[in-house]
């Protein structure tokens, strides 16, 4: 192995340790170290990336990529789900910016409107309904944190290494398959890119659009049906104390009343579960 690949390996391992430190665990100490290590890892990775072109392009891209990735890390590591959701919104904005860099203006707008505007807000509604304070025990505990962080980091590392090594020395086939700037100027980067997208979408892919529309309708009906028929009636009697299931039922009753679940009761339920 040569030098740059060792750097990528180091970046991967650093990323894995950083994610492990940042993720919620029972004893979550060391997150500041995680931030430092993560930053170093990302920096190492960035150092191995080829420059795109002019420094302005590079800096715009780097800023957007950094925002996207950091916001993504924050999304999965923040204890309070409300913050997670907001960080996810930021990550989406960064993605939208990346789409703009690529010349996919319509997608940038669609991502912001559909994801950040609709889906994410709906999730925030639900979060507010369920647990607005972010003090639930399950937000402060992870599942197989170390193994998962390692696995994810290794996948990213392998993908990055492969991508870099393949694309810095592209095969003739891959290079020949690339479009010329002339073609691109008449295609994806054309004068009216959104018009081109629309004509392709409602021309070549018309049936797929219809199917997607049917899928959306089905999802709408399905969601309504789940909510309408999935309700459970409250239990007829108050369960005995000390029963874990009973403790959960109690919590559910509290939620069913429309009040926010009291943190003490949730914690009490968690204590019963020990």
């Amino acid at each position: 192995m040569n030098h740059p690949q060792w750097i990528l390996v180091a970046a991967t391992l650093l990323g894995a340790v950083a994610m492990w430190l940042l993720l919620p665990r029972v004893r979550d100490r060391g997150w500041p170290l995680g931030i430092v290590l993560g930053a170093i890892g990302l920096g190492l990775l960035a150092s191995q990336m080829p420059r795109i072109g002019h420094w302005t392009t590079d800096s715009v891209f780097l800023v957007l990529a950094a925002v996207t990735v950091v916001a993504a890390v924050a999304t999965v590591t923040f204890r309070n789900p409300v913050y997670s959701a907001i960080w996810f919104g930021l990550s989406l904005l960064g993605t939208a910016g990346l789409f703009l860099v690529q010349g996919a203006a319509f997608l940038a707008v669609a991502t912001v409107i559909v994801y950040a505007g609709a889906i994410l807000v709906t999730f925030l509604f639900l979060l507010m309904l369920a647990d607005p304070q972010g003090r639930a025990y399950y937000d402060r505990i992870g599942w197989e944190t170390s193994l998962s962080a390692f696995a994810g980091a290794v996948i990213v590392g392998i993908l990055s290494m492969t991508t870099i090594s393949v694309l810095t020395n592209p095969s003739d086939q891959l290079a020949a398959a690339a479009a010329t700037d002339q073609q691109r100027a008449e295609g994806v980067l054309g004068e009216y890119p959104i018009a081109g997208l629309g004509s392709a979408l409602f021309g070549t892919h018309l049936i797929a659009v219809e199917v997607a529309g049917a899928l959306l309708l089905a999802a709408l009906v399905g969601a309504a049906a789940i909510v309408a028929h999935g309700r459970v009636k409250p239990p007829p009697e108050i369960p005995e104390k000390g029963d874990p299931a009973a403790a959960r039922q109690t919590g559910q009753e509290a939620a069913g009343d429309g009040e926010p679940a009291s943190p003490t009761r949730t914690h009490a339920a968690a204590e019963h579960r020990r």
Binding site: W143, E144, L147, S148, A151, G152, V154, I155
Partner: peptide, 15 residues
């Protein structure tokens, strides 16, 4: 999540 982790590890092994 256990199943998902098992799948990811399997993919990792394959890669």
């Amino acid at each position: 999540q256990f199943y998902a982790l098992a799948m990811v590890l399997g993919v990792l092994v394959l890669i």
